[in-house]
Amino acid sequence: MEMTYEFSKEDLAEIEKIKAKYPDKKSPVMPVLWLAQEKFGHVEPEVQQLVARTLDLPAAHVYGVVSFYTQYYGKKMGKYVLDVCTTTSCQLCGGYEILHYIEDKLGIKAGETTKDGLFSIQSVECLGACGYAPMMQITNGVYCNHLTKEKVDTIIDGLRAGRMPEFESIPMPQHLDESTNKIG
């Protein structure tokens, strides 16, 4: 089924706001791609062309940008993209064990999507949560830190039930009151 992608009036108003932040017409392409990806779930070629048309940019330029940045989904992904960090600190603290556990659990390999279209797994580069390893990010959104197999089970069960994990605020250890474990 051919799908046509369009921006709504509200999207276009938002795009105008984005454009106002930059002095030229090329610069808004990244935030507008983000907006498009949030709306459509991906930025496949048809969406890239929509972005190019909307911003009056060459389609090739938009394609070049999409393919450069790993967070843009140039092709459709699962509803939940599990980006498991495996770079150094996570590697040291069991990132690959978590990755393989998720792979086995979902029956797919990193880079693949489950048949039901619910999950994709990616082994990704450092997400900047090195102290909270192993960890993963879900669909470019929330970070899940200090992963254990049990925690992964809970998260995946939750996602299956449509529950996105909540943002975990991790205070600096030196701020924690040793008795209450709270800041102050």
Partner: peptide, 14 residues
Amino acid sequence: YGISGHVNRPGVYE
């Protein structure tokens, strides 16, 4: 200081 890896209390310290 962002300290990670095989330490008991990793994290960011100022």
